[in-house]
Design a protein around this nucleic acid. Structure first.
Length: 271
DNA sequence: CTATGGACCTGAATGC
DNA sequence: TGCATTCAGGTCCATA
């Protein structure tokens, strides 16, 4: 679930519920991707002042230090009032004065890492090297085109790498390339400025639309039970191998790039 | 420096 | 029905 839109929707939901909350207790389950990096007891009493996002990382800014949360492949954050029957995949729980923040993450690729100061390891290492935020002023067509020129790999892989722009995951990489009518295997550095501009616009459009749709899961999110949103993704190509292209009717194809599935229309998307 | 493949972990879906 | 294989929304790290 967690591509940038889901993370952003989560961020907004958490912001309305947890700003100003004081941490009362922390509970850890099985190990996540990295250790928390601080004794739980140390964080008790601190307050959540703001919740930001960098790429797919959530940054809970405390009155001292930052809690960095990543949802990995299968992570899901909820806030509930009740202690609730703990599932065996709830690996992080933070009881606050305004509810219990709970990370449910079966695959445990997610992480919760504390940093007393973002200029510090390991947080610095995690956040440095990330590409520009798609919704920042830095994500601008000419700069995007210039950045793509440095890469010889397939445009799909470059989008996924997050080195040029963050937040475009496996689903939206395919979707954005379809919207821009660009073949996923095209070398990134070979895109003309016209096509690069089209991709730039497509990325924004696809992410914005997904966030707007994710808004429907926001209500569920704020729900006391924190049920899963099930907001549907009406994908044009993702997961639609063999089904007709919504534009030309030809069958959508799947190929593997960098061990990830890519979906595309061989007719609408060209080099 | 860029590019590629493996690793991490669990559950659901598919195949025999 | 049971068991093995494949695949899944991410990204760090070692290697070439």
């Amino acid at each position: 679930m967690p591509e940038l839109p889901e993370v952003e929707v989560t961020r907004r939901g958490l912001t309305t519920l947890l700003i100003g909350a004081q941490i009362l207790q922390l509970k850890l389950g099985k190990p996540l991707r990295w250790p928390l990096g601080v004794a739980c007891q140390t964080l008790v009493g601190r307050r959540i002042q703001a919740i930001d996002r960098r790429g797919k990382y959530l940054l809970l800014r405390l009155d001292e230090g930052v809690l960095l949360i990543h949802l990995g492949m299968s992570g899901h954050l909820t806030v509930t009032a009740e202690p609730a029957a703990g599932s065996r995949h709830d690996h992080f729980e933070m009881q606050t004065s305004q509810g219990i923040l709970r990370l449910h993450d079966p695959r445990r690729f997610g992480a919760v890492v504390y940093s007393s100061d973002l200029q510090h390891d390991p947080a610095l290492k995690l956040l440095s090297g990330l590409g520009v935020e798609p919704f920042s002023a830095d994500f601008e067509p000419a700069a995007f085109h210039a950045a793509l020129k440095k890469h010889r790999a397939a445009i799909k892989s470059v989008l996924l790498s997050g080195k040029v722009v963050v937040g475009v995951g496996n689903i939206y990489a395919s979707e954005a390339l379809f919207a821009a009518r660009i073949h996923p295997a095209t070398p990134a550095g070979r895109l003309s400025s016209v096509r690069s501009n089209r991709l730039h616009a497509a990325i924004l459009q696809v992410l914005e639309q997904a966030i707007a749709q994710g808004g429907s899961s926001l209500r569920d999110f704020a729900d006391a039970l924190g049920q899963d949103g099930h907001f549907q993704l009406h994908a044009s190509v993702y997961g639609r191998a063999g089904q007709p292209c919504k534009h030309c009717g030809r069958p959508i194809r799947m190929m593997v790039q960098g061990q990830r599935s890519t979906y595309y229309c061989p007719r609408c998307q060209r080099w």
